[in-house]
Design a protein around this nucleic acid. Structure first.
Lengths: 243, 243
DNA sequence: CGTTGCTTTGATGCCCGTCAATGATTGTGG
DNA sequence: CCACAATCATTGACGGGCATCAAAGCAACG
């Protein structure tokens, strides 16, 4: 989807769409390889796996034997500090890739937010495929780049935005992700605590800020797993520090 | 701001300055490339450039025409919000690479912290080199991965650590970077404001926290650009939330 | 229906930001 | 080399935003 590139400038979109099927212009010049798309090439070495809600898909420090793509459901990537503090790095939705590591071990923990179906690619096969096929290699590089881009925006959010700005940025990222318009409802597969751990806040601050946005008629909250956006333009102003 | 201070060293031909030493096969694409290490391969396409303190090396949004390596001096990478708030993503020291982008434009601004010398690689040549040579491609992936890893740790720091923990983590990162021991002095090429903008704090909080660490005898501050570490183990405890 | 887990709201306090003044260091021109 | 200005760093006083502690609502499930 186009927005991934365009949204770069103004809005700090925290959600990362790792590894979407983005057009990869670079391989166009080669022309020598048989005309096959790199996603099909990946298909050939993937297998399906299921995880129940709250199951751990892999833990930080585990051998990074697999690379994943979400088919359905949602996943969170997080880091745990020694004393139990938790920071969520990313939420993954269908078609997002995750678990690609340069090092031998995972640098994050992946957990199922909901029951989830994933495609799993063995790392050794992926590496071999990458060596053989330049487009696959570049597609992996693109996934890495998108993750880095998302992490850098996340850093700005946590370092320099207020609680309200962070929550609004988070909502706007979901809006962009699904192409929502005023009046549309957003699905929130994650809990308030997950949102808090993503935004570097407490659950109470997240709740209070949601209530505040509701009182101000920017959003509605029909139930705990949905938010209806009422005034996206006003939200954009808030995210950019206009209020 | 001050006059642009870019100066490309003209006494060297920017194109082929390393050609003096190494025999470079004219067409790198030829299948049977001689065994050569990827750094030398990079050398062949790099040229030297100088920037004065506070000069802008490139700005967010500029066409990403070059990829850089620090030779001497130090560089900061930062993002600016519309209202002037600044977040520093990274500080770069000699041998660090920066400015590698997947997108067409830079996602960060790079500024010279001190007078700085860099090697500059043209992106188009780098791309061609990457297509031809797998080791170069992988070395670029490695650089990306390290950046991502650093950004993820930065996220945890900003999201879940206190001011004291952040400052201590920052000091410890410098300690690791130069392999300092108790009693060694660390060079701080950046200002207090830069440190604050890296840690997501204000300059006053940074100063107060430095003073606190000094009072507690964990560090000494002989002058504004040096910190002497007195008790690294105690600092490690603080960074992990032990105090 | 009661239990369980999650969410929301309220009361209170503290960490850190803001505002302000002073001190230290660097740079500049006489 | 000194005088002065400009910049940067430090410290203090104060307040606000968010965390903490506590309790009450609410939905899912046996």
């Amino acid at each position: 989807m186009s927005h991934a590139a365009e949204a770069v400038q103004s809005s700090f979109t925290p959600i990362n769409r790792a590894g979407q099927a983005v057009s990869v212009p670079a391989s166009a010049k080669s022309g020598a390889a048989p005309k096959r798309d790199h996603l099909s090439a990946l298909q050939a070495i993937g297998s399906i796996a299921h995880f129940a809600r709250n199951a751990t898909i892999f833990s930080e420090g585990d051998d990074a034997n697999y690379f994943y793509r979400v088919v359905s459901g949602a996943v969170r990537l997080c880091k745990l500090m020694g004393d139990g503090r938790r920071q969520i790095a990313d939420f993954l939705l269908p078609d997002d890739f995750f678990g690609f590591e340069w090092l031998k071990t995972y640098s994050l923990t992946a957990e199922a937010l909901t029951d989830v179906v994933v495609v799993r690619y063995s790392r050794s096969r992926l590496d071999r495929l990458g060596e053989a096929r330049h487009d696959v290699q570049e597609s992996l590089m693109g996934a890495l780049s998108r993750d880095l881009w998302a992490a850098q925006n996340h850093v700005v959010m946590l370092g320099r935005q207020s609680a309200k700005e962070r929550l609004v940025s988070f909502i706007l990222a979901l809006v962009e992700r699904v192409g929502a318009k005023n009046g549309d409802a957003l699905e929130l597969p994650m809990s308030r605590q997950d949102i808090a751990d993503y935004l570097g806040l407490t659950i109470e601050t997240v709740c209070r800020t949601i209530s505040e946005l509701k009182r101000a008629r920017y959003i509605d909250v029909p139930n705990r797993s949905q938010i209806t956006v009422r005034n996206i333009d006003a939200l954009r102003d808030i995210a950019d520090g206009e209020f």
